[in-house]
């Protein structure tokens, strides 16, 4: 059983002006809610209903529609912080991810690629001079290094580069 539920303080103030509900009143409201929800009218108001029937139907429809809206609002308001946090986290991780893969990783990989090429070039030169390169320390265990020989830094488009590409495209098309 539910020990208690929360409703928005703004709704509480508007719906319970006395600021207090006795257990019997809560029991009565839940029973009333249950009865209405079980037989909530659907669709358009039928024609030829007597006024009391119309009023009864209107009351039930109103209670259900307003309660649905209040529950949606409750969730939207209570989750507001989560919505904001998720937007913030998405932006922060996007920026950090972009920073790493644009500004941090590429220079290191390019540096590693250049140094690997230099090592191989010096080893080839040493071999050509009859030096046993395997005897030179420290050696490198190539299997345990990150393979970056074919690495090319990703090209990220900027608004300027897109603009230049568009201008170039239309310049070429215009020549035909």
């Amino acid at each position: 059983m539910t020990a208690g539920v929360e409703i928005l303080a703004a709704d509480w103030a508007a719906l319970v002006p006395t600021g207090r509900l006795e257990p019997d009143e809560v029991r009565g409201l839940l029973a009333r809610g249950r009865a209405i929800a079980a037989a909530a009218p659907a669709g358009a108001m039928p024609e030829r209903l007597s006024r009391p029937e119309r009023l009864e139907r209107l009351r039930r429809s109103l209670a259900v529609a307003a309660a649905r809206a209040a529950v949606h609002r409750f969730e939207l308001v209570r989750q507001r912080e989560r919505f904001e946090r998720s937007e913030r986290d998405e932006v922060e991780t996007y920026e950090r991810h972009l920073e790493l893969h644009k500004d941090v990783v590429p220079p290191l990989k390019l540096e590693a690629r250049a140094l690997r090429a230099e090592v191989r070039s010096l080893e080839a030169e040493a071999r050509a001079r009859g030096i046993d390169v395997d005897a030179i320390q420290p050696a490198i265990d190539w299997r345990n290094t990150l393979a970056v020989d074919g690495y090319e830094a990703p090209k990220y488009e900027t608004p300027e580069s897109r603009k230049r590409a568009a201008v170039e495209f239309f310049r070429r098309v215009g020549k035909r």
Partner: peptide, 23 residues
């Protein structure tokens, strides 16, 4: 919520309470 009247699901209890209050 009184033990003998409340549904187990708090979301359902909240909805029924709102229906009762609006009615």
């Amino acid at each position: 919520m009184p033990d003998d009247a409340s549904p187990a699901d708090p979301a359902e209890a909240r909805f029924l309470l709102y229906v009762g209050l609006f009615d």
